[in-house]
Simulated assay, not measured.
Amino acid sequence: MAAYSGRCASNGCNVTEAPDVAHISPCRRKAANDVRKGLLLRADIHDLFDIGLIAGDTETMSVVLSIEVRATKYSYLHGKEVRLSGDENLWPRKEALASYKSWSQL
């Protein structure tokens, strides 16, 4: 929460109860819970992320949506810059984002 100032990385939503931690790559051990292996996303956007309908572009650090999602109320997110921490050491790992984007085929 602190790395993202309590705001969703995709749309800036700051409702305290709304954000969830979305793991970019599977996290099986508590020790693997590294802020750089996740994103803070609003719960509904987290769900879209988990099923591969939303990803991050590592070149532009922006949101990429599947074609299906682009035709919904979430269309405003496509191409939107991902909100990152002011501390680069807390940014998501580009390798993990690239791997996830490849998996999601976006």
Rank of each mutant, 00 (worst) to 15 (best):
M1S: 15
A2P: 04
A2D: 01
A2V: 09
A3T: 08
A3G: 02
Y4I: 03
Y4E: 03
G6M: 12
G6W: 15
G6I: 10
G6S: 15
R7Y: 01
R7W: 01
A9N: 11
A9C: 14
S10A: 14
S10P: 03
S10N: 00
S10D: 05
G12Y: 02
G12A: 07
C13Y: 13
N14Y: 12
V15L: 12
V15H: 14
V15S: 11
E17Y: 08
P19F: 05
V21I: 12
H23P: 00
I24E: 06
I24N: 10
I24P: 04
S25A: 09
S25C: 07
P26N: 01
C27D: 01
C27S: 03
R28K: 15
R28S: 11
R28A: 10
R29L: 04
K30H: 13
K30A: 15
A31M: 13
A31G: 04
A32G: 06
D34K: 14
D34M: 06
D34V: 14
V35S: 11
R36D: 03
R36Q: 13
K37T: 01
K37D: 02
G38E: 04
G38I: 07
L39T: 05
L39C: 11
L40A: 04
L40R: 01
L41E: 03
R42C: 09
R42Q: 10
A43K: 12
A43F: 08
A43I: 10
D44W: 01
H46L: 05
D47R: 11
L48Y: 02
F49S: 05
F49V: 14
D50N: 11
D50Q: 07
D50R: 07
I51T: 09
G52N: 02
G52S: 09
G52D: 06
L53V: 03
I54F: 04
I54H: 01
I54T: 10
A55G: 07
A55V: 05
G56D: 09
D57L: 03
T58H: 05
T58M: 04
E59F: 14
E59A: 15
E59L: 14
T60F: 01
S62W: 01
V63F: 14
V63A: 15
L65A: 09
L65C: 13
L65H: 02
S66G: 04
S66V: 10
I67N: 06
I67V: 14
I67C: 06
E68P: 14
E68M: 14
E68F: 07
E68W: 09
V69D: 00
T72A: 02
T72R: 00
Y74Q: 04
S75K: 14
S75T: 04
Y76N: 01
L77P: 00
L77Y: 12
H78T: 08
H78W: 09
H78F: 13
H78A: 07
E81F: 06
E81W: 01
V82S: 05
R83D: 04
R83I: 07
L84E: 00
S85F: 13
S85R: 04
S85K: 11
G86H: 12
D87T: 06
E88I: 15
E88L: 12
N89T: 05
N89C: 05
L90T: 12
L90P: 04
P92Q: 12
P92K: 05
R93F: 02
K94L: 11
A96N: 11
A96Y: 14
S99V: 10
Y100A: 14
S102R: 15
S104F: 07
S104D: 02
S104P: 10
S104E: 00
Q105W: 05
L106V: 08
L106F: 10
